[in-house]
Simulated scan of single mutants.
Amino acid sequence: MNFDFLSPVSDSVMAHSTLLASQALGRKMLIHSSQNGFPDLEDVQLAIIGVLENRNDVDYIGDEIYLDNIRKSFYQLFPGNWNVKVADLGDINKGETVEDTYYALRTILEILIQKKIIPIILGGSQDLTFANYRAYDNIIPMVNIVNVDSKFNLGDSAKPIKSNSFVGKIVVDQPYNLFNYSTIGYQTYFNSQEEIDLMEKLYFEFYRLGEVSNNITLAEPVLRDANIVSVDLNVVKASELGGRQQLSPNGLDGKEICAISRYAGISNKVSSFGIYEYKPSNDDDVTPMLVAQMIWYFIEGFSFRVSDDDFSNENNYQKFITLVEEQELIFFKSNKTGRWWIEIPFLSNVNNKLKKHTLLPCMHQDYIDACNNKVPERWYKAFKKNCI
């Protein structure tokens, strides 16, 4: 197996974990260490992987990345009331080239996802999301990516890939597997008008920081529909982070980024979760602890996953039909969880990627809007994307 790409968790972290309380996560998890070797993945549900690659960071000046501080912070936390088996598989070191690192990451992710183990990727630069996306090539035909970020990262696909311009590459790179790309928490002044126009033109979804801060539940249906969630730590406002990590006075706060991580965990579709753009510093204890808590909330969300999207049995759901501008909109509400979906109709005359009626996660508010003769924007964009 290609787990040879992974190097064990450092001895200093392992020594630190021996001093922890017996109930702490560092004493409960399976850990790839030089002493115990690679863990048995039988029954493992979630696997932490570090990727020490940041050479495509737009601000790269030769600095090395290390994740020991995040691990120390995470290992000292106590688990919630979970019955979840978590492993820390260690780190992928920098390859000879960045492409080598991408290859190693893609290979490992593909194995884990096929084993139904969800990778939690701790990274250097966010362009690693590209390798994460390519890991799905042989797994599912269409991929939805959610980027929690102050920027869209579309960039110029004709230029070499960078941490702030990897999405353009995802859009144009064959095979074309991207169905939807959503950005949560973008800040308009960090994005050119051309990029905003392109997001509109491609019917991608984007939610401004103000919208999300005012109502964090807006993020839930978007994350419920995601396969890949990629978080750029620069989406968090400066006052919540350590010195090297600070970028913008505005951004999500610690509570909001943890809520988003929990929504990602609860989503039945999310099968990989990445946290990127960590800038290590020995005098910063705040950022590693925030990342540790984000991982904790993702695991907690995962432990609360409920299969509520089986609509083959009428006892599982309620069905609501509304008429908006002569368009029949069909909503479903799960009796188990109270979560809502809206049906995207199948267009038989279009060479359609989906080939069947598709249910799009939505909010109760979307149903209320439809009753007031207002077409939900998520439905409109998904419908238009089907027509392309």
Rank of each mutant, 00 (worst) to 15 (best):
K319S: 11
F204A: 10
N227E: 14
I161D: 00
Q246T: 08
L46K: 00
T97K: 08
S150W: 02
Q187S: 10
Y317W: 12
Q327V: 09
K28I: 08
K353C: 10
I118H: 04
D137S: 05
E195A: 15
D63L: 10
S334I: 11
C362W: 03
I368D: 00
N153W: 00
S213Q: 13
E195C: 12
N2K: 13
T322E: 12
P345Q: 05
K237I: 13
F204Y: 15
I92L: 05
S334Y: 06
R224L: 14
I145Q: 03
Q327G: 01
K201E: 10
D173K: 13
V375W: 04
Y136D: 02
E328G: 03
N268I: 13
R244D: 07
P160I: 05
V146W: 03
I117H: 05
V86G: 01
M142C: 06
G274I: 02
S17N: 14
I120E: 02
R134A: 02
K72Y: 05
L89H: 06
V167H: 05
G50C: 12
I120S: 04
V270Y: 08
S230W: 00
S34H: 03
D308H: 12
P39G: 06
V58M: 10
D366W: 07
T322Y: 03
Y103P: 00
L252S: 05
I117A: 09
P160W: 03
H364N: 11
I275G: 00
F78Q: 08
T188V: 15
A87W: 01
K374H: 07
I145D: 01
M29W: 11
F5V: 08
Y75T: 04
Q187R: 13
V143E: 01
S239V: 13
F320N: 07
L198K: 05
L347Y: 12
L360E: 10
F179E: 09
A21W: 00
V229W: 04
L209I: 12
D232E: 02
K356E: 15
P141W: 04
G338C: 09
Y278T: 00
V291L: 06
G80S: 07
G168S: 08
N144C: 10
I330W: 03
K385C: 06
D285Q: 09
E200Y: 07
N69F: 11
F331C: 05
N191Q: 09
I120H: 04
D156R: 07
I388E: 07
S239N: 09
N227I: 12
D283R: 10
Q365T: 14
I92K: 00
N56V: 02
I70F: 08
Q76K: 15
L347R: 11
L241D: 06
